[in-house]
């Protein structure tokens, strides 16, 4: 009896499999949809991160939009220039200038620099803490509970010493952190070079109020604006005109950085401060002497 039951069960599933496969096979031929071959090729060329950085739901939808609706080929922030080139080749178009889009955290205060912090016992999320007053003095700056860190799928943003810090080596510019931040202090900015000048403060209060809540915040003194036309002070906050920004910083811009009393004009991007720190310890000889023992060339140099 047991053997018959098992046999019947297996037979049922086998027959179902055969019949349903036949029906679905017939349907797949009958309801066949022609997909643009270019869309499939573009799909292969894209990184497949499905992050939504391009503004479409996923890589598949963006590939379709490029193939059928002549969407720009350089929208993929993850793939960058190489990906844009590959997609442009498939579509047979010229690729425009691609600038990687990267987030900038417009706050530079670690826990020690933020004044008026109170003990917060609520849910440890920025979105929750943002609803409560008096978590910290500054109502503009980073809260440090790491909503951005949780939103990031690329492990590229971390709360270090209470401040969200972007790891530009890992960041692909999808913009998930920007959407997650309840205080909107992370902006996605086109990086014209590996390093970009940024104002790392978002506080729009008057200078006196800023000093009372933060050790490092921008007080809107306007020293930078006087030094260089790149900067303007809007709402008591220094602002960089990124359209006029050039990767090779002119002297007046560097001068403005020096003149900032609060040191809020800093360069962000690659290489990270950590890499620079490591490089400082390394001893770089001024002149590299050829070593005859290891050199392949055995001719002696006689000055």
């Amino acid at each position: 009896m047991g053997a018959v039951t098992i046999g019947l069960s297996a037979g049922t599933l086998l027959i179902m499999a055969i019949v349903l496969t036949a029906v679905l096979g017939w349907a797949s031929v009958k309801f066949h949809v022609d997909v643009d071959q270019r869309a499939l090729d573009i799909m292969d060329a894209l990184p497949g991160a499905n992050c939504g950085g391009c503004g479409y739901v996923g890589c598949g939808e963006y590939a379709e939009a490029v193939a059928l609706e002549h969407e720009a080929v350089n929208k993929c922030t993850v793939g960058g220039q190489n990906c844009a080139l590959a997609v442009a080749e498939i579509m047979g178009v010229e690729v425009g200038e691609t600038m990687p889009y990267r987030p900038i955290v417009h706050c530079g205060a670690s826990y020690a620099d933020r004044l008026g912090r109170n003990e917060y016992r609520g849910e440890k999320r920025c979105a929750a803490a943002n609803l409560v007053t008096d978590v910290q003095g500054c109502t503009y700056g980073c809260l440090g509970f790491g909503d951005c860190e949780n939103a990031c799928e690329f492990d590229a943003i971390h709360v270090i010493d209470g401040l969200a810090t972007v790891d530009y080596d890992k960041c692909v510019g999808c913009g998930a952190c920007t959407k997650a931040c309840p205080r909107n202090i992370i902006t996605i900015t086109p990086f014209k070079s590996e390093q970009m000048l940024a104002v790392t403060c978002s506080n729009k209060d008057k200078g006196k109020d800023v000093i009372s809540v933060c050790n490092v915040g921008c007080i809107g003194c306007g020293a930078c604006a006087r030094a260089s036309s790149l900067f303007t002070v809007q709402d008591n906050l220094s602002t960089i005109n990124y359209d006029a920004y050039s990767p090779t910083c002119s002297l007046d811009v560097l001068d403005a950085c020096k003149k900032c009393k609060r040191q809020r004009l800093v360069f962000v991007g690659k290489p990270s401060p950590k890499d620079v720190e490591k490089a400082i310890d390394m001893k770089v000889p001024d002149v590299v002497e050829p070593d005859f023992k290891t050199s392949v060339d055995d001719t002696e140099w006689r000055g």
Binding site: V4, S9, T12, L13, L20, V23, L24, S28
Partner: peptide, 25 residues
């Protein structure tokens, strides 16, 4: 002979096929 133990797997099987069919349609 009682094969009702098979109901879940058979139903899931048929639902999956029905969904696949509707999706193609």
């Amino acid at each position: 002979i009682d094969l009702t133990i098979m109901t879940y797997i058979v139903y899931i099987f048929s639902i999956a096929s029905a969904v696949q069919f509707v999706e193609m349609y």
